[in-house]
């Protein structure tokens, strides 16, 4: 006797977990009366059990390490970010440097207003500071975004930022004379200044 095809479909519905109660009833009744289908069902059950039994396999112990080794090189920024994340002190230090240099470099870029640190005994004309003949300026002079012409005497250091210094033959500077026209010089100058100020505040 040929069994209805439906029966095998019901068996597979059973394995898929979506056999309805009526179907289950129909299958049960058929299996009770048909040895061939009962054997078929039993074989399927065994097959599934074997499959599930065989399921367990684990990856080889060094697998994860090998995968990570074979990975393409990661972007540099990511490595740096992780590195900084792991070393907070270094991060703080590099942040400090980044901010310091960054702000200094950008303040170099903006050619600000003309300024001069001394206004007694000097003449200011067209962004040029003139120390007239016969005059003596006591203390340091810092000129920003302008030049200085020294015909008299400066009793201290002269620093010119973004500008030129002109010395008359009679002019005299007792301290150091410095022209700053490069960004690195500018940064260096600032660091020196800050360092000096820090030293002074300690003293």
């Amino acid at each position: 006797m040929e069994c209805p095809k439906e029966i095998v479909l019901l068996m597979h519905s059973y394995f898929d977990g979506d056999l309805q109660p009526e179907g289950e009833q129909q299958l049960k009744e058929h299996l009770r009366s048909c040895a061939a289908c009962a054997a078929h069902f039993h074989e399927l059950k065994k097959t599934v059990a074997f499959l599930q039994y065989a399921a367990h396999v684990a990856a080889p112990p060094s697998f994860a390490a090998k995968v990570m080794e074979a990975m393409p090189k990661e972007r540099k920024t990511a490595r740096l970010r992780r590195f900084l994340h792991r070393h907070p002190l270094l991060t703080a230090a590099s942040l400090f440097f980044a901010l310091t240099f960054g702000s200094l470099a950008s303040s170099w870029g903006e050619r600000g207003a003309f300024s001069v640190s001394a206004d007694e005994h000097v003449i200011i004309r067209d962004h040029t500071v003139i120390v007239p003949k016969g005059e003596t300026v006591k203390g340091d002079i810092v000129v920003r975004n302008g030049s200085i012409r020294i015909e008299g005497t400066v009793d201290g250091d002269v620093t010119v930022i973004h500008g030129k210094k002109y010395m008359a033959s009679a002019g005299q500077v007792t301290g150091e004379v410095e022209e700053i026209n490069q960004v690195f010089e500018w940064i260096w100058y600032n660091i020196k200044e800050r360092f000096n100020r820090a030293l002074q505040s300690i003293e």
């Binding site: 396999v57 684990a58 990856a59 080889p60 697998f63 990570m68 990511a78």
Partner: peptide, 30 residues
């Protein structure tokens, strides 16, 4: 996605057995 490769190691650890098993069963050769 931001590029941190070490974060991927955690995922490899989590899924390595499943993925290896799938490959082993499909290909039949360790």
């Amino acid at each position: 996605q931001k590029g941190d490769q070490n974060a991927y190691a955690d995922l490899v650890d989590l899924y390595k057995d499943k993925i290896y098993r799938l490959c082993y069963r499909m290909l039949g050769n360790p």
